[in-house]
Design a protein around this nucleic acid. Sequence first.
DNA 1: ATGAAGAGTGACAACCATTGTCAAAATGAT
DNA 2: ATCATTTTGACAATGGTTGTCACTCTTCAT
Lengths: 138, 138
Amino acid sequence: MSLQQQPAKEQRRTRQRAAVDEVLEETEDFISAQDLHAALRSRGMSVGLATVYRTLQTLADNGQVDVLHTSSGEAAYRRCARDEHHHHLVCRSCKATVEVAGPAVERWTRSVAKEHGYVDVAHTLEIFGLCPRCAAQA
Amino acid sequence: MSLQQQPAKEQRRTRQRAAVDEVLEETEDFISAQDLHAALRSRGMSVGLATVYRTLQTLADNGQVDVLHTSSGEAAYRRCARDEHHHHLVCRSCKATVEVAGPAVERWTRSVAKEHGYVDVAHTLEIFGLCPRCAAQA
DNA sequence: ATGAAGAGTGACAACCATTGTCAAAATGAT
DNA sequence: ATCATTTTGACAATGGTTGTCACTCTTCAT
Ligand SMILES: [Zn+2]
Ligand SMILES: [Zn+2]
Ligand SMILES: [Zn+2]
Ligand SMILES: [Zn+2]
């Protein structure tokens, strides 16, 4: 999501990071740090909460996971399929996520910024709704 | 007999709400609940912090102010000029804000959602950058 | 104007996601 | 193995936001 990312600083391979990676790999939807921590515990792969936060922070800084800020302000993380810049269509109810790219939108944001003389521009864009399955119920 | 309630639930006119309204009216940029509370105190118009939060919450629910979630997760509020749906180009440094509308973007989000069968759709879109003035310095 | 009904207030506690601390443990290079 | 450096984790601390609840203020019918 972010346009810029730090040159990945050296990191050591630890049991904890492998565990976080594993859960991220197997998790299709966005997941919060707290929930990831709980998921680890329930799998017997106990990792300190602070470590989970730090690991996710680093992954996000390196652009290896996408970050989504929920309406409640909680941050959620997801290992996305595509590596290039993109956005998300997220189910408000079950969190089912679709990755979407919109070149036109990218052009539009750049042109708007330029038009007003803003530089060093970035943007956030998320689409929320009810996925077909959740819409079918109710 | 009593009248039925309108979409906007009935509200009483109180000194506190008038005070919050006044500050919002005179504030050009997005402002957080905490900062608004401080601004009120410094003007001698003391209002309880909880009341400031509740008032802003209600204004936001009624669409009378726009809400922006900063990167730090803090919520900021702003009384915008236009009443119709729009987005914001915000200076990362001084918070200078430009209201922008993008019909094409609106169409795009709707089409993307429809394409994947998502309904009851909404979206968030904010553009961040450095305004001309802030860019001039540094 | 008066009083009842209940919406609104505020000082304070509680909540909770996130970050800071720092001694102990783990890692990678020598 | 040894050492310098990084990482960890239990716990404390932070900070924005919400919950509590007795008291106050608006509103409205009388
Ligand atoms: Zn769903
Ligand atoms: Zn984009
Ligand atoms: Zn600026
Ligand atoms: Zn829009």
